[in-house]
């Protein structure tokens, strides 16, 4: 049994989500190999080779994979992956984009967003926005799986010394091409990996008011998130959204400010270790999951919080 893990990266650095995927692969058991597909991505391959428990790194270095376009990635991973028992990727927007394409090309079903491994063919995943947990057994010859990072502790990034092997394929897509990108820039920690997350909702009132969250966040080293209401109202960009349709986070501390706690938002944060809610509506559903609730006007409470932490 050999497992192929697809590395998540931006051509210069390995994304930490890959370490959680390797951890899931270890629970399945068997040899673990990593595919790094990108352009000028030697540094990523080196980092992948050092991950504890990895036996081989395959590098597909071509302009075709620079932006991990789904058509090229799907073709590459389906071709390479045919000899493996399992193909795993992180359940990021990149993994979610190409992995189902890979599965269909291999004529197998796929299992999305697993949070636990029961055995080599049985996996646990949330359904209905996390309101039910399904245990799924697959009889497919190759298991194509995306892994929810918050379900697994990261594998050690050091300790391995895997061999690096080049793969010369070039699956340039004739029908799809990168045009442009607009990336949100932030010095704060990555939302999905942060130890502390502070999120604002509709109660923030407007985008400028998020400044008071940023101040607290910078003082305690937190990432800043948002509810869908805050994103739809244009307060903050969509990549800050936490929830069923946004990012799934499970930090040690999650502070929900001016967020009512709709099912879809809870789906993205209720695995957090400690949840704090600051809301002036004491009937808000968020208080039903909060370990510590403060019924107060956020415009008084948040600046005071900043002073006291």
């Amino acid at each position: 049994m050999t497992i192929l893990v697809i590395a998540e990266h931006d051509n210069t650095a390995l994304n930490a989500a890959t370490l959680n995927v390797v951890a899931a692969a270890k629970e399945i058991g068997g040899d673990i190999e990593i595919l790094v597909a990108g352009e000028a991505c030697a540094a990523v391959a080196d980092a992948a080779a050092k991950i504890d428990g990895v036996s081989k790194v395959v590098v597909a270095d071509s302009a075709a994979y620079k932006y991990q376009i789904a058509e090229a990635m799907g073709d590459l991973v389906a071709e390479l992956g045919a000899g493996y028992s399992h193909i795993l990727a992180a359940a990021t927007t990149t993994g979610k984009d190409f992995m189902p394409r890979t599965a269909a090309l291999l004529d197998v079903n796929m299992i999305s967003d697993i949070v636990a491994v029961e055995s080599a063919d049985t996996f646990v995943r949330p359904i209905y926005a996390g309101n039910a947990i399904a245990t799924v057994q697959s009889s497919d010859s190759i298991k194509v799986i995306t892994v929810r990072g918050t379900g697994f502790d990261a594998a050690p990034a050091e300790g391995g010394s895997a061999a690096i092997e080049a793969n010369a394929t070039d699956k340039t897509s004739a029908t799809s091409a990168f045009v442009s990108e607009e990336l949100a820039k932030s010095d704060r920690p990555d939302l999905t990996a942060a130890e502390i997350v502070i999120s604002g909702g509709r109660g923030m009132g407007n985008g400028e008011n998020f400044e008071i969250l940023y101040k607290v966040a910078d003082k305690i080293g937190a990432a800043v998130g948002a509810s869908r209401a805050a994103v739809d109202a244009g307060f903050v960009p969509n990549d800050m959204q936490v929830g069923q349709t946004g990012k799934i986070v499970a930090p040690s501390l999650y502070i929900a400010v001016g967020i009512s706690g709709a099912i879809q938002h809870l789906a993205g944060m209720k695995e957090s270790k400690v949840i704090v809610a600051i809301n002036k509506d004491e009937e808000a559903p968020i208080f039903q999951v909060a370990d510590y609730g403060l019924v107060a006007d956020l415009f008084d409470a948040v600046p005071e919080l900043e002073k006291l932490v």
Partner: peptide, 8 residues
């Protein structure tokens, strides 16, 4: 996408 927006 996770990091913002990307156009294809």
């Amino acid at each position: 996408v996770d990091a913002g927006l990307r156009t294809v």
